[in-house]
């Protein structure tokens, strides 16, 4: 297994108390596999990724427990020096907003080349050549002419390609993409997702795709982990999950997508609001919004348990949800 996250807990100290952002997350990604982590804002999907990458803001954040194994080694007990070598060369991250993630006062060539200067000890001139190669690989037209341009001189789609190029620079075996296309227009999103999927296939990397978009997930993912209030509530192969969700939250999300035959009728809407992380409801965090909730759901946290080969659900009544 390329990456394994085991029982990860992350909390943030805030003025109003401790916000439990991640409460025991387990997931794993293999080489060449695409895992989509689906969730709304505040579900803990990005915080988990930041903990894996080792870029969590500490303090106020704190990893309160768990293990993150990358190629069998626990990243959380590693020395910072060793961890830094993993970052970039072993795993890399693509962020949502390319304009604020790139340095506005350095040319893109300098920023791409820096990867090779720092990690590989290359000369500035060689690094520049490598930067042009990278830009070619992510299909930025006229790479040689544009290598000295600054981030603001590129369009949104092109900037996201530069982010991808930077992540690919040191041939990592795992890429974490945090909402990589959310800021892009639909037609550009299609271009960027296509490129990402193709590069992943080519290099047989593991890909963790963090998103809230059920459409993007269906297009590219092999497996989905659905997060709610800092926990994974369902984990399943993509076809199984869309065919028959085993958790009422997943089901609610799928049912709230507008369908043709619903024209003129109300959409299905999950009632209520996502929980406040300072006061997560007792028992199953979804119980106040769940149409199937009963006493057991308020008394005890349902564990993420296997419901079929390769799929798990954190609902006591998953059978009901699956079957009727």
């Amino acid at each position: 297994m390329l990456l394994e996250v085991r029982d990860l807990h992350v909390e943030f100290k805030t003025r109003d108390g401790v916000a439990k952002a991640v409460n025991g997350v387990n997931y794993s990604v293999d080489e060449g596999e695409t895992l989509a982590v689906l969730g709304e804002s505040g579900s803990g999907k990005s915080v988990t990724a930041q903990a894996v990458m080792g870029i969590l803001d500490v303090p106020p954040g704190r990893i309160a427990g768990g293990e993150i194994l990358f190629k069998g080694k626990n990243l959380l007990t590693m020395k910072e020096e060793e961890r830094r070598r993993v970052r970039g060369a072993g795993m890399a991250m693509i962020f949502q907003d390319a304009l604020s993630s790139l340095n506005p006062v350095l040319s893109v060539g300098a920023q791409l080349g820096e990867m090779y200067e720092v990690h590989r000890g290359m000369s500035r001139k060689d690094a520049r050549t490598k930067a042009v190669e990278l830009m070619d690989r992510v299909r930025i037209p006229a790479a040689r002419q544009r290598v000295g341009d600054y981030p603001h001189q590129f369009s949104g789609g092109m900037r996201q390609r530069i982010m991808i190029a930077m992540a690919l620079a040191l041939d990592p075996s795992l890429i974490i993409a945090d909402e990589p296309t959310t800021a892009l227009d639909v037609t550009v999103q299609a271009q960027v997702m296509d490129l990402l999927a193709e590069l992943q296939r080519e290099m047989s990397m593991g890909l963790i795709l963090i998103t809230h978009d059920l459409g993007v997930v269906a297009d590219v993912a092999d497996r989905i982990a659905v997060m709610y209030a800092g926990r994974i509530v369902e984990n399943a192969p993509v076809h199984d999950l869309y065919a028959a969700p085993a958790h009422p939250y997943t089901r609610g999300l799928l049912d709230s997508i507008p369908r043709l035959d619903q024209k003129g009728q109300d959409l299905y809407a999950i009632k209520g609001l996502p929980p406040n992380l300072l006061a997560i409801p007792a028992g199953c965090a979804f119980n106040p919004r769940c149409p199937m909730a009963r006493a057991a759901c308020r008394a005890e946290v349902p564990p993420l348990a296997d419901v079929a080969p390769g799929r798990a659900s954190a609902c006591f009544f998953w059978k009901e949800c699956l079957g009727g």
């Binding site: 639909v186 299609a190 059920l214 459409g215 993007v216 269906a218 993912a221 993509v238 869309y242």
Partner: peptide, 9 residues
């Protein structure tokens, strides 16, 4: 180009 929420598609 709109992603369709149906992996079968």
């Amino acid at each position: 180009a709109v992603p369709v929420p149906d992996p079968g598609a």
